[in-house]
Design a protein around this nucleic acid. Structure first.
Lengths: 182, 182
DNA sequence: ACGGTTCCATACGGGGGCGTATGGAAGGAG
DNA sequence: CTCCTTCCATACGCCCCCGTATGGAACCGT
């Protein structure tokens, strides 16, 4: 077994802990126990717990946010992209958990900027999508916020009361409603 | 100044702390300091920290969930009630904060049952509303979940990125979209 | 006013997470 | 092989929160 760990080894388990237990679970000592090491390693790679958390969040942001958008861009039509976006976003419960963890810790100074960037990026992308679908600039942004709200809310419900949101046709319903002309 | 405190005094500040700092902020010692007492008082009124938290949540559930619904029922038309519900729900940032705190701590055994009951109650009420508006039973429930998702999402955004959701006409937009016939 | 009950302050031990210091092991360069 | 750098284990002190024990103050009935 390898003895030495890298920064990435640490952000790896930190991310896993984040998914499972939220921001509070990104704690040096429990993580060290889990990775089969001691704090000594962590505090060599990172100056403190906050730096570890920040590195973890930034890595997630770098690797996942754009990945989803890239995957969605494969779809030929804007409406298809929107549909795929919702499907992909709500299916990947791992990614979802990070999102909810960030929302839950939005006041943490390490979390706020990441959350802000990710939110802006996603709403912007949705705005483009609605624009391409045919909504004028202003309405497109409104729909984007609405759609993103619906996504966030469904993600929450999915975690808190799964039976409510696991209904046949909810995805199609949501899409139909969100893209309906005024 | 009064020296002796009641159970309600404790759940009062516990609720205030919950609003400001989430479930984790409902901690005996900080609360005691804040109320100008010591742990001794808390541990006389409650067997442990969990009991205090539970009492706080149940009190909030008792006093606020139904209050909102009662207030909304004053509106004459179902559509008016729906509109008022959204307006009231999103304006009361205090109540909103509790909601988000519960969502953020949904895995806490003291929180889960309350969250579940509140969610069910609200979705049920929304279902009735959509039914009264004219949607058949099945569609009404779908719209209720959708509307509640939109509310949750907007509450999140309101806390995380207020400028995005503070747009003129978003409320009307949301209502129009959510009540649109398929 | 006095005796019992209700309430609470103080003091203590425990656990868990943070951060520091220090000695030493593992790996690479020569 | 040797030396130097990189990495990490151990041990320590600190803070914060939980929960318990105990003596005593405040309140109430009579």
């Amino acid at each position: 077994m390898r003895k030495r760990r890298t920064k990435d080894d640490w952000t790896d388990i930190a991310l896993r802990a984040l998914v499972e237990g939220g921001v509070a679970a990104v704690a040096v000592e429990p993580l060290a126990a889990r990775i089969g090491a001691t704090k000594g390693s962590a505090y060599w790679h990172f100056p403190n717990r906050d730096a570890l958390l920040t590195a973890t969040l930034e890595r997630w942001e770098r690797e996942h946010t754009e990945a989803v958008i890239a995957r969605v861009q494969a779809e030929p039509t804007p409406l298809g992209r929107l549909r795929r976006l919702f499907a992909v976003a709500l299916e990947d419960s791992r990614d979802n958990a990070v999102e909810l963890a960030l929302l839950a810790a939005k006041d943490d100074p390490a979390v706020a900027p990441v959350l802000r960037r990710v939110t802006d990026r996603r709403v912007d992308y949705l705005t483009d999508l609605f624009h391409d679908i045919g909504f004028p600039d202003d309405a497109a942004r409104g729909r984007a916020v609405l759609a993103y709200s619906a996504y966030l809310g469904q993600a929450q419900l999915l975690a808190a009361a799964p039976d409510l949101v696991r209904r046949r046709g909810l995805l199609d319903d949501t899409l139909a409603v969100v893209t309906a002309r005024g």
